[in-house]
């Protein structure tokens, strides 16, 4: 892993998003390629800052269309954070998806999203609409 040129030698400030505390982090890319991270109150912040510089990732939460569900949309999420740069393409991919009710929380809706190795999973139950006479 290398630090991109933009960051090297530059200071970067950021807000940690891993918890509601929202620590103000500062990352200095040392000339030797090392990262100096300050401002965090826990280890997660430190890790976040490093990832944010090297490979920023986000959990994507959105919806997919449901057929025969009690509601027209099913809320879904990526099981883990995916590279930030893939958010838009992931949305486009999921927009074409239409799934069948019923669904249970945690069911895999789409495996291996854009070859990330990360699944998209249901974040709630969705009952099938009962057939009305």
């Amino acid at each position: 892993m290398t630090i991109d040129g933009k960051t090297k030698g530059n200071n970067r400030k950021m807000t940690c998003i891993t918890c509601p505390t929202g620590c103000q982090l500062e990352v200095r890319g040392g000339a030797d390629g090392e990262l100096e991270i300050t401002g965090f109150q826990c280890r997660r912040g430190e890790e976040y800052a490093r990832n944010e510089v090297l490979n920023p990732k986000r959990v994507l939460t959105t919806t997919v269309k449901v057929r025969n569900g009690v509601l027209p949309l099913l809320p879904v999420r990526t099981a883990k954070a995916i590279p930030k740069g893939l958010l838009e393409r992931s949305m486009d991919t999921l927009a074409d998806l239409e799934i069948q009710a019923p669904v249970r929380t945690g069911d895999v809706i789409l495996a291996n999203l854009l070859d990330t190795g990360i699944d998209v999973i249901a974040s709630r139950d969705m009952e099938k609409v009962s057939n009305v006479g």
Binding site: K65, D92, A95
Partner: peptide, 10 residues
């Protein structure tokens, strides 16, 4: 409708 913007190009 939901998702329409994504299908028709952003």
């Amino acid at each position: 409708e939901a998702k329409e913007f994504l299908k028709g190009g952003k």
